[in-house]
């Protein structure tokens, strides 16, 4: 007892750091969303719920929100499709090979989003390698203009978030007792049936957090749409940043941010509740 108290006190700076510079800012954001707008300054003196009414009735905002959520959903599912084979392959590897593969999966995680997006810019550029390969193969007769399209944004986002999906699924797959898979095969299940009935459900403890994390991060991803999407498509995050640093309408920007966060949160809660029973069954 005597030794526990000073030890717990060591956590104080961290708690204070997050309380003051994470929790209070969120409170400030919510407060800001109820302030009045005033052109020429960040915000007015009074309080109002007009921004929420404005956002919820404006087709522009709701459209952007719907686009952002749909894009996030698409990216999340695409990430799952891309990640599962990688995670499976990674979970089967061992020794030096596993090391190399881990480095391949983890390295992108340690390189800024901006730089990874930039790589795609180089590749899909009008006189970039992709177009030249396609031209020389005769598949196209004019270079494709891929930059500043929604497709490229989606591709780059899948690339950005894939490691976030691979790592938890890989962990879950590694936690599956191999004897369970052998048991399934010995009982007459085909490879496919074993995957569908045993491996997939048992890897769900990795799939669920992966899906949630990628969905949330994708909903509010700013850099990629801003760099690769150009002015073509209005996404919620770009709209929020424009409102904040372009028109300096902080209350409206705050409202948009709160609405976006709430929408993503509702989606996550609904998904968690829907998959709760499965999680409880398969959790070790």
């Amino acid at each position: 007892m005597t030794r526990r108290l000073p030890r717990l006190a060591l956590g104080l700076p961290a708690v204070l750091l997050l309380l003051v510079f994470l929790i209070l800012p969120y409170a400030e954001m919510i407060t800001m969303s109820f302030r009045t707008s005033q052109p020429g300054t960040m915000h007015g003196a009074g309080f109002t719920a007009d921004h929420y009414r404005n956002v919820m009735s404006g087709g522009l905002y709701l459209g952007a929100l719907a686009r952002s959520l749909l894009l996030a959903l698409f990216i999340t599912l695409a990430c799952l499709v891309v990640s599962y084979p990688i995670a499976w392959h990674l979970s089967r590897a061992s020794g030096r090979k596993a090391l190399l593969l881990y480095a391949c999966v983890a390295s992108p995680l340690m390189i800024g989003v901006l730089i990874r997006n930039f790589g795609w810019m180089i590749i899909v550029n009008v006189d970039g390698p992709l177009n030249r390969v396609l031209l020389s193969l005769g598949l196209i007769d004019r270079p494709l203009r891929l930059l500043f399209t929604q497709g490229l944004v989606a591709l780059a986002l899948v690339h950005v978030f894939t490691p976030f999906m691979v790592l938890p699924i890989n962990n879950a797959l590694r936690n599956i007792n191999p004897a369970v898979i052998e048991a399934s095969r010995s009982l007459g299940a085909s490879r496919f049936a074993t995957f569908w009935k045993v491996i997939l459900p048992l890897s769900f403890p990795g799939i669920q957090p992966g899906l949630i994390l990628v969905f949330v991060l994708a909903t509010a991803a700013y850099v990629t749409p801003a760099l690769l999407g150009g002015q073509m498509v209005t996404m919620m995050p770009t709209l929020v940043v424009q409102t904040l640093v372009g028109t300096f309408d902080w209350p409206l920007g705050a409202t948009l941010a709160v609405v976006m966060a709430t929408a993503a949160l509702i989606a996550v809660v609904v998904f968690s509740l829907a998959t709760q029973r499965l999680m409880e069954r398969v959790r070790a």
Partner: peptide, 26 residues
Amino acid sequence: FQIGMTLPLLIPELLTAIGLLFFLYR
């Protein structure tokens, strides 16, 4: 405690940045 400590990782950077923008200004 761990969840609390990793909150900045679990919520999108954009939202934290916006909150901080307002709060630091205040």
